[in-house]
Nucleic acid binder design. Sequence first.
DNA 1: GGAAATTTGTTCGTATGTATA
DNA 2: TTATACATACGAACAAATTTC
Lengths: 83, 83
Amino acid sequence: MAEIDFDGPDPIYRQLADVLKSRIGDGVYPPNRKIPSEAALCSEFDVSRNTVRAALRILAGLGMVRPVVGRGVFVIPPEVKEP
Amino acid sequence: MAEIDFDGPDPIYRQLADVLKSRIGDGVYPPNRKIPSEAALCSEFDVSRNTVRAALRILAGLGMVRPVVGRGVFVIPPEVKEP
DNA sequence: GGAAATTTGTTCGTATGTATA
DNA sequence: TTATACATACGAACAAATTTC
C-alpha cells in the first residue's frame, strides 16, 4: 500500500503527483473542494514542502487544481478545464 | 550583545528559541504573564513572523509557553509542568 | 452595542543554501 | 552539470478570537 516508493525509479514528486491525480479522479478530493494543505501532505507522505509543491505544480499545469494564497488548493471541475 | 547570529551555525529560529528560553528562565518574562507579541518579536529581532513562530513552537513543545488566539503567548509556571 | 485594532492560526508564494546522484 | 530532495527564511493574504475604543 506504500503509495510512494522512495527508492523507486521515478522521482518522489512525480509519484506524488500521480497519487494526487488518482485521488482527484476517484473523487477522494471532490471538485470545487480543497485538497489537504501542503503541510498536511508533507506529514502524510513524509516529504518536504518543496517536494509537495513540485507535485502540485504538475497538477496545476494540467489545470486540475488552483492554489489560492491564504485559502488552500482547490480542485477544478473537469467541465471547466480549458479545451 | 548580538543575541542572534545571522551567519551562525544554528538556524535563526533555534537561536531565537534559546534567547526566549533564557528570558523565561531569568524571569524577564515572568510566569503566567504574556511575552511580547509575535509582531513585537519580529521588530526586536528583525526576523520574519514565520521565524518567530518557529521559535515559539519549540518553546510550546517544551511546555514553556501556551499561545492563545486573540490574547497572546503566556509563560507556563515550572511547577505546573507535567513531571 | 458596535467597529476597529490586536493577536494568534493557517495557507500559499518565493528565494536561497546544502546535499546527493 | 543537471535534476532531485530537504531545510531554512521572508512575504503575503486570509481566518478566528479577543481586546480596545
